[in-house]
Design a binder for these strands. Structure first.
Lengths: 207, 207
DNA sequence: GCCATTCGTCTAGAATACTAAACGCCTTCA
DNA sequence: TGAAGGCGTTTAGTATTCTAGACGAATGGC
């Protein structure tokens, strides 16, 4: 009955080449996940076992998918990193997209008086949209207030920013910051005589 | 050794009034979570057991935290809803308000060689945590790699940043940026001779 | 070469999870 | 009133996980 998840293990230890529980888990199986994560942290089975308070044999068996660990023991093992079970199961090991971006690679979205340069080429599948923004003197996102789902925040790097949020207007200078619910109508304007540069982030991505 | 997580169960079934494994799990324990979720779905232990392909006794024992289910059987149980283990372990919510922050209001979190200045006083209930960070020459988040839930990104404003993510090392200069899954082990270091300033954002907040 | 370490794996036996089948309590219906 | 069925709980026994220790292979002195 136990069936498809567990494997016979006191007998032939993997007759055929199969490793993964067939229909089962998400992307990589538990064992492979654990092994890769452990290696990323540069730990041996024994080191991890000591931190976690289990034996190295347990780590070995889990990594080979010879056993399906209990929640309790898996938690103990992951505490050795530390990492929660939920994170462990959702961590994306493989298609480690891109991490580093040179300044010239930031994709220009707007252009003209307002420059929005996006971190990363594509926001799909991402939780944050970060941009390097530059407003020329007088530049303005428009009288028509913006509003969309999510939350956004930013820090002024240089120049002066006039920010309107939900009817409230404020002038921010270098080092000042903001954080608001994007559903509140908002507007960005550069009332100064030099460029205004800010770094902003919003979630979820709106482009 | 097995120790703190499991409870004696063939004997006195909870001498004192305690229910939760003391130091252990996150918010609600596994058993309570399962029970509440099951009731939200309007299922009896037997119904869920039948859908899941386990016995009602198993559901009962899990809900009482008398056993710590194996990953395999917990998965089978949750398939009865259906719901993933990761989702199961992460259920929750909250509120908030305040928009503008002067530079001096950004709350200093670290101090010393590394300065983290947080946008907003409190990140609870927020989706993004944005910080103005400054690393003095040689400053380092440490050999022991960081790793926590979520995604993070940033842009270098000035100076040079040496960033290590999942074993890959890279030097970033003003205008360069990064974006990665925070659960990958990572490290920030200023290898230059002047302060390195960056603006970062991560979600969800980790402080 | 040889010893000392460290690595991942494997095995016997102890500890734990899980099943099948009861139990007691309750409600419903005849 | 009693039979029938649903509920969550408990128990005895089986299946699985987990520990302690040993194994062979690889590595680094010396």
């Amino acid at each position: 009955m136990a069936g498809d998840f567990r494997r016979a293990h006191r007998s032939a230890p993997a007759a055929e080449g199969k490793e993964k529980p067939e229909g089962g888990e998400a992307s990589p199986d538990i064992g492979t996940r654990l092994r890769e994560l452990r290696k990323m942290h540069g730990l041996s089975q024994r080191e991890l076992a000591k931190r976690a308070g289990v034996t190295n044999g347990t780590i070995s068996l889990i990594e080979q998918n010879r056993i399906s660990p209990s929640i309790g023991s898996l938690k103990k093992v992951l505490d050795g990193f530390p990492m929660s079970i939920a994170d462990f199961l959702t961590l994306d090991l493989k298609p480690r997209s891109r991490v580093f971006y040179e300044a010239k690679e930031l994709r220009e979205i707007a252009g003209g008086d307002v420059s929005f340069r996006l971190v990363g080429r594509d926001t799909r599948g991402r939780a944050i949209q970060m941009m390097h923004e530059r407003y020329t003197p007088g530049a303005d996102t428009g009288e028509e207030m913006l509003s969309h789902a999510g939350e956004e925040c930013g820090i002024v790097i240089s120049g002066v920013l006039e920010l309107t949020v939900g009817g409230e207007v404020r002038r921010l200078v270098a080092g000042d910051a903001y954080y608001f619910d994007s559903r509140l109508p908002h507007r960005f304007r550069n009332p100064g005589t030099i460029d205004c540069v800010i770094v902003s982030a919003c979630t979820p991505p709106s482009f």
